[in-house]
Write a protein that binds this DNA or RNA. Structure first.
Lengths: 151, 151
DNA sequence: CTTGAAAAGAACTGCCT
DNA sequence: AGGCAGTTCTTTTCAAG
């Protein structure tokens, strides 16, 4: 694990919200020079604390107005069954995230679709036919807020 | 909604996985010049399809080894109750995402903690004391895979 | 749409405190 | 660790085909 001071945490918090901010402007906000700030960011990248930079897409504007969370309980779950399920589920383009979890469900899926009929198609033809699927629970996303986490 | 061709979708797919790739290199991959690629990306930003660029942090390396998904059912849910709950839940630093959903649960929370004892503390002192909380279900994250979505 | 060029700005390096 | 000065690279804008 890596040692982080207050400034490092501040940089991570700022960049988590907007990764386009440059080292010069960021440094000014924390009372540091551009190279000093840049070196801190580079250190965070090299150590792996910063795993990458990703785009934040607006699903609505892409024509995907419906996001549904599915909780999947497998009917049969041996080693083979898990791998079969994972391979099949990652081949479905509408599945954005696959989370293997422990608890009420075995997997949690984030699925996006153009509209409700489109979602029904994905659910019936793609999800319900996955190998080993038992029970499936659904929750439709109304609104969402992301936060920096406990930095 | 914005009209996108195959190249736009390709750019979004590429940048979703790694937003550090520059216009020149990206353009080469799609047979476009640097300025042409840059104009496309700018158009996607201005139209709001690209909502922003965020950091992808490694929670493990930050010392947060435990991620738990909570499904929360409210006991009382009027207009006031929802706002009270949302205001209180967003004040908890360990809560990374708050999703207002329709279905089995009313809210779904992504919570990170240093370890299981730390999680128990958050659950007992912070989550269970939220205004209006009824039943709470938990799923512990084992592994996760994110994908570009149906672009 | 393209290429080519030029200016501005950000990223990166080396050296010094 | 941090700062300063300089170099390299990308971004950004422009002209012209």
């Amino acid at each position: 694990m890596i040692e982080l001071d207050e400034i490092d945490r501040g940089l991570l918090r700022a960049l988590s919200e907007d990764a386009t901010r440059n080292a010069g402007a960021l440094g000014r906000a924390f009372g540091l020079s551009q190279p000093a700030t840049w070196r801190r960011i580079k250190r965070l990248q090299d150590s792996g604390v910063i795993a990458g930079r990703r785009l934040d897409l607006d699903a609505e504007k892409l024509g995907f107005g419906v996001t549904v969370f599915l909780g999947v309980k497998l009917a049969t779950k041996g080693q083979i069954s898990l791998e079969d399920f994972e391979r099949a589920v990652t081949a479905i383009p509408e599945v954005q995230t696959v989370e293997h979890v422990l608890g009420m469900y075995d997997y949690r899926l984030r699925v996006t679709a153009r509209d409700i009929p489109d979602f029904e198609r994905v659910l019936r033809r793609r999800i319900m036919t996955l190998p080993g699927v038992g029970n499936v629970d659904a929750n439709v996303l109304l609104s969402e807020e992301r936060r920096p986490g406990p930095l």
